[in-house]
Amino acid sequence: MLDPAGEATRAAAARLGVDGVRSLRIGKAIELELEAPDKTTAQGQLELLSDRLFANPVIENWQLELLEKAGEQQQ
């Protein structure tokens, strides 16, 4: 789907002298802190939030990655 803000930014990159930017899309990054009893519950809640609130699946794709904190044991 056309991302006009991404296209405008790509054109500006060329004006800055950086050629070869073949595609550029602009999205959102959302940071949140969530309290949950366990990782499975947290993942379920984040998927619900991503699908029903943060993104509109008609026009936006989303992906969710859980990052382990350094030194933390995976449960």
Binding site: L2, P4, A8, V58
Partner: peptide, 17 residues
Amino acid sequence: LTEMGLLPGALTRNARL
């Protein structure tokens, strides 16, 4: 109405911004 799902599709940024 589209966000509610009462009408399908979505409205996005105008093509020429």
